[in-house]
Structures are given as C-alpha cells and as structure tokens.
C-alpha cells in the first residue's frame, strides 16, 4: 500500500482541509487497499518552501499550496492579473483550455506535477472610510497587501496607497488606523474577525487565486501506471466539486458578513479599464510571460 502524505499550510477545519478530506475519501474508494492518503494541516511536515522543494527530492509526496508556488512556476502569477476572471465558471474554462495546459507545463523541471486546481476564492476589499464603487473611491486609501510586487503595483495603479504588511499585523493596524483597509477572500474577513475593525466590504472580486494540488515526480514514479492515473484523475474530479462548494460557502459567508459591515457591489467595467495598463506592465508581463497572458485572454475571450 502506497502512502501519500499531503501537506497544507492552512489549519484543520479550513476549506483546504475540507477539500483534502473529500480527495482522501474519493481516492481511497477508487483504489481500495492500494493507497493510504494522510493529511497534514498547519505545515506540520515542514515549512511550505521546504515541502515544495522536498517534492522533487521525494521526501514529501504532495502539497496543496496557493501563492507559494509562484516561486517555482512564475506562470501561476497569471492569477495576480486583476479583473481577469469574472466568476468561477471562467476559472474552470481557463483550467480546461490550452492556457491551463501551458500553466501546468510551467512546473516542468521543478520535480512536481500539477494534478489539479481547486477553489480558494475571489478577493474583496474592505475599508473604514467609504464604500468602494469606482476606482476614484480608492483614492488615497492605505490598503494593506501581501508582500507581493504585482499586488502592490495593482493597488497603486488603481489610485490607492498599497502598504505591504504581514498578515499577523493586519488586525491591529486596522484597529489603530495605521491602514484604512485590506483585501482578502470573504472567509478571511470572517475567520480573522476583520469585520470588528472594518466598516465597508466592497465585492471587488479583483483577483481570483486557486489552490494548486502539486504532486512530487519521485512519488508518482514509484506508483504503478494505473494508480498514477487514478491519483491524478480523482484530483481533477474533485475540482468542480470544490468550486461549487466554494461558491456556496462564499455566498453564505457574504450574507452573514452583511450583518456586520456594509456590503456593496462595484462597477466591474470601470475597474477593468482602470487596470488595463497592468496588462502591459513589466512587473506582470516579465514574470508571467507575454505568451501566457495572450493564451489566457484567448481562452477567456478577452480582447
């Protein structure tokens, strides 16, 4: 019986845990007695950077990661391009398109294979000053971003004052007013209790980031062919289920949050055109690759 240990940086009970448990259930049912899936949440098998490197060495078998893979496959920074995906259906169209294939090919030579992309979420802007409807509303607001050059440039281009800060400091910085707002998926606003220190949540959907289930090549090579195919195909089968689960949970979370802060829709078209220059910016193009951007636009039917 093969042992497949899967790492995640997120805690038990998180959406990543729910997806991995679903994968464990389906894979063990599809290959009974052939594989034992073991889930390790909260990075208990090592720092994410070490785990991802270990996939190539064969010390680790698989990891469900998000932005950390951009260090390994820069094409995944395509998900940093704002206003690219209008909804989760668009994300799934992208995954099944030649652009999705191109993204997966970007992992070649890194010792790991992209088995599937599962849900994570659209990011929303919260702040303390006013509802954000058009780009002009962002003017002069100090918005916290992760330490991510693309995100910083994006918010600066839209007129905000991007402030990179580690996530652990966000709550108190919002509380003390050293920053005005932040951007994260709705479930983070909920679990980190950011609604306690924020007045407005604008459904900006500015960026969609999936989670990536990556599997180490040495591990895959150790499986016989049938099992190898099953490991990958079951991962792909979980994807649509995860997007549906994510969509429903997002709707519920936003509904619950609307009791705690003021929620509003944004002018998507206005933001899309304000963000247009970023599609030419070297900060994005040099990292993602012009061919990757072009293929993605093709797949999504964007001019």
């Amino acid at each position: 019986e093969a042992v497949m240990q899967i790492n995640s940086s997120l805690p038990e009970g998180s959406f990543a845990h729910v997806f991995l448990q679903e994968y464990e259930k389906r894979l063990e049912a599809a290959a009974p007695g052939e594989i034992d899936v073991q889930i390790f949440m909260s990075n208990t098998l090592g720092k994410e950077e070490d785990v991802l490197q270990g996939l190539g060495f064969g010390t680790h078998q698989a990891s469900l990661s998000a932005s950390a893979v951009s260090q390994i496959n820069t094409r995944t920074s395509i998900f940093d391009l704002p206003y690219l995906f209008e909804d989760r259906a668009a994300v799934q169209t992208f995954i099944d398109s030649p652009a999705g294939e191109m993204l997966a090919e970007g992992f070649e030579g890194s010792g790991m294979v992209l088995a599937a992309m599962w849900d994570n979420g659209f990011r929303q802007i919260t702040n303390n000053v006013r509802p954000i409807v058009t780009p002009a509303d962002l003017d002069g607001l100090k918005i916290r971003t992760p330490t991510n050059r693309q995100r910083v440039e994006m918010f600066n281009t839209l007129g905000a004052n991007a402030t990179p800060l580690s996530f652990g400091e966000v709550y108190s910085a919002l509380d003390q007013g050293t920053i005005d707002g932040q951007e994260n998926p709705a479930n983070v606003v909920d679990t980190a209790k950011l609604y306690e220190v924020q007045g407005y949540m604008s459904l900006s959907n500015h960026v969609y980031l999936p989670t990536f289930l990556v599997i180490g090549e040495p591990f895959l090579a150790s499986l016989d062919e049938d099992l190898r195919d099953t490991v990958i195909s079951v991962a792909k089968e979980v994807a649509p289920w995860s997007f549906e689960w994510g969509e429903n949970t997002d709707t519920e979370t936003i509904a619950a949050l609307s009791d705690k802060l003021e929620v509003n829709e944004i002018d998507f078209a206005a933001f899309q055109s304000a963000a247009a220059p970023l599609y030419e910016s070297p900060t994005f193009v040099d990292v993602i690759g012009a061919d990757m951007i072009a293929a993605t636009k093709d797949a999504l039917g964007i001019e």
């Binding site: 090592g46 720092k47 950077e49 070490d50 490197q53 270990g54 060495f57 064969g58 010390t59 040495p218």
Partner: peptide, 12 residues
C-alpha cells in the same frame, strides 16, 4: 523515508 529530508527540515 528519503534521507534528503535531513537537508531541508533542520534549516526550516
């Protein structure tokens, strides 16, 4: 267990 783990985890 793959022994290369000794090159990753102590640093982490």
């Amino acid at each position: 267990v793959v022994p290369q783990i000794m090159g990753l985890i102590p640093f982490g």
